[in-house]
Every structure is written in structure tokens, then in C-alpha cells.
């Protein structure tokens, strides 16, 4: 993530803010300004709740540049309660504890650094839903 990209994406990356289409009312995450469902403009912000369930997941054992020191880590598709799927890492959970359908909630976490001298990047991740975990 470049410095400019880090700044530009802060609202959806740290605030989990998407959009809602004023024409067809589709909820969009990440924001994209043009609705992919009806093709009309969709710039109205919508704060997503951050709650969802694991739709699919994998354990990354070989990492791309920028994530080498972090393996193994769990990446997932999360089905938000508003509807859209979101790609993100899972955190606070062992890879063998993850299952499809697992309730998760969004948290802001460190994700990587731009080398020794660069900026530290933060991003949304998902952890097991605390309320659901407390019931077990």
C-alpha cells in the first residue's frame, strides 16, 4: 500500500464504511461510486456493522512480498450481515479452529510494514465474534 493509497482508503479500511445505491438500494463494500447492480451513481456512504460469517478461508503458507514474516496466516471471504462478501485476514484464531459459517466481527489491526523505514499499514481483519465465543 502506498502512502497515498493508505490515506485515500482510510474510511473504508479503518471505518468499514461502504456505500448504498440510491436507485436500487444495493449495499456496496468496498465503495466504488458506481453501482455494479444497476449501473447508476452510488456515492452515499453506509457504515457497515462489521458483523458477518466466514464464507470461505485458507491458510497462507507461502506469502507474497510484504507478508513473508507472517506465515502461516488465515485469509477469508466474509459474508457481511449487510450482504456483500469481503476479503480479509482472520485474527485471534488458530487456523484449525476456523470453519465455514463461523460468526466473526471486524477489528482494526496492523497488517504489514513498508520495509524498515516505511509506514506501518493497518487494515480491517475479522476475529471470532466475542458474544458467540462467550456462549461456548
Amino acid at each position: 500500500m502506498s502512502l497515498a493509497s493508505s490515506w485515500r482508503t482510510r474510511k473504508f479500511r479503518l471505518g468499514f464504511v461502504g456505500e448504498i445505491c440510491p436507485q436500487c438500494h444495493a449495499k456496496l463494500f468496498p465503495p466504488r461510486d458506481i453501482c455494479p447492480h444497476c449501473g447508476g451513481p452510488a456515492k452515499e456512504p453506509l457504515a457497515f456493522s462489521g458483523h458477518g460469517t466466514v464464507y470461505s478461508y485458507t491458510t497462507m503458507s507461502v506469502a507474497p512480498r510484504g507478508f513473508e514474516g507472517q506465515t502461516p496466516y488465515v485469509a477469508a471471504l466474509v459474508k457481511t450481515e449487510e450482504g456483500p462478501l469481503v476479503t480479509a485476514q482472520l485474527t485471534d484464531v488458530a487456523s484449525d479452529e476456523v470453519f465455514i459459517g463461523m460468526p466473526v466481527e471486524m477489528v482494526t489491526r496492523h497488517i504489514n510494514e513498508e520495509g524498515d523505514d516505511g509506514i506501518i499499514n493497518y487494515h480491517f481483519k475479522f476475529r471470532p465474534e466475542l458474544a458467540a465465543a462467550a456462549k461456548h
Binding site: M1, S5, T9, P30, M60, V62, A63, P64, G66, F67, Q70, Y73, A75, T87, A88, Q89, I111, N112, N121, H123
Partner: peptide, 10 residues
């Protein structure tokens, strides 16, 4: 790049 790769996905 912004919504998949930024999360460490290959």
C-alpha cells in the same frame, strides 16, 4: 490490488 492483495492474498 486494493481489496485482495492488500490483505496478503496471492
Amino acid at each position: 490490488a486494493e481489496n485482495e492483495v492488500a490483505h496478503g492474498l496471492s
